[in-house]
């Protein structure tokens, strides 16, 4: 059950991150690089749909978890109780409405800023029921919610932006425009990664040092694996920025950069999967 729950959470969060990061970067590129032809967005239509469909699955699994009985996820009364009587359920209703709007928006090609707001809000609302919120200093949950929300948004910008960049490389965009788009992504990406690391430190300090009981070995091991993967992502990003980007006019560099971006994106997906797993583990016992 925990493996299925992890997959559902990963699918939901990764899909939303792809849509949010893509919409943010598209919005920035449209204003700063108007000559750039952006990909049509087939993948993000699928991602928006995946986020919508995985949301009720997450609700069902969470209800089963709360009830301590797997059968509860198929019990309409228990599901109704979960939706109406818990913070998670009430947040789910709001998030589900946003996800429906997001799907319409993606299909009808609404403005990128609107899509970014819809997907970003759906993403950040996950923080309301996070451990960081629950273990905020002095029970001041706004600290944990803000930190966790920024962590999700900046992670989303990184992953969604990478996916869009990979699309630009794959469709044979002229080198001068690719260089411009990559440089613009790098500018914002550096800010995003800095915030991601800072909020990560705050979240970890809150969760591990502020929680009850002793930290669990499994939680620390998975968190360590996640840290190692993020370090690898940062290393790839540095190689891209300082070694490959200056030589982008060369075909070999373009191919190497596309390969690195795909690897960085793949690592990002693994990081989100580990985060989904961590969300189901006990940080402390």
């Amino acid at each position: 059950m925990i493996a299925f729950f992890t997959i559902v959470r990963w699918l939901h969060e990764a899909s939303l991150m792809l849509v949010f990061g893509g919409a943010m970067l598209r919005s920035i590129l449209r204003s700063r690089l108007p000559a750039l032809a952006l990909p049509p967005g087939r993948i993000r239509r699928l991602a928006a749909l995946a986020a919508l469909l995985s949301a009720p699955l997450w609700l069902g699994l969470a209800t089963a978890q709360m009830a301590g009985d797997n059968a509860a996820m198929f019990d309409p009364k228990m599901l109704a109780l979960g939706v109406t009587q818990t913070l998670f359920g009430q947040t789910f209703l709001l998030r589900f409405a946003l996800l429906v709007l997001l799907c319409f928006g993606v299909l009808l090609k609404w403005r990128e800023g609107v899509l970014a707001i819809l997907s970003g809000t759906a993403l950040v609302l996950i923080s309301l029921t996070s451990h960081a919120a629950a273990t905020s200093p002095a029970h001041f949950t706004a600290i944990g919610i803000t930190s966790d929300g920024l962590h999700l948004l900046t992670g989303g910008f990184w992953i969604g932006g990478l996916a869009l960049l990979a699309g630009l490389f794959a469709r044979g965009t002229p080198a001068v425009l690719l260089a411009g788009a990559t440089a613009i992504f790098a500018e914002w990406g550096m800010i995003a990664v800095a915030i991601l690391v800072m909020t990560g430190m705050l979240n970890a300090a809150t969760i591990l040092l502020g929680g009850e009981g002793h930290d669990t070995a499994t939680y620390l091991a998975v968190l360590g694996a996640k840290l190692a993967l993020v370090a690898a992502m940062v290393a790839l990003a540095l190689v891209n920025h300082f070694r490959l980007l200056p030589k982008l006019a060369e075909d070999a560099s373009q191919a190497a950069l596309l390969r690195n971006i795909r690897q960085e994106l793949g690592l990002g997906m693994l990081v989100v999967a580990l985060a989904a797993w961590l969300g189901l583990l006990a940080p402390t016992l």
Partner: peptide, 24 residues
């Protein structure tokens, strides 16, 4: 060692979830 590991891992956290422990 334990705190060192905690601080090392504190470089990156995750939207993890808590458990309501009985305190008293």
């Amino acid at each position: 060692m334990h705190k060192s590991l905690t601080l090392l891992f504190a470089l990156l956290a995750t939207p993890a979830f808590a458990h309501a422990h009985l305190q008293k």
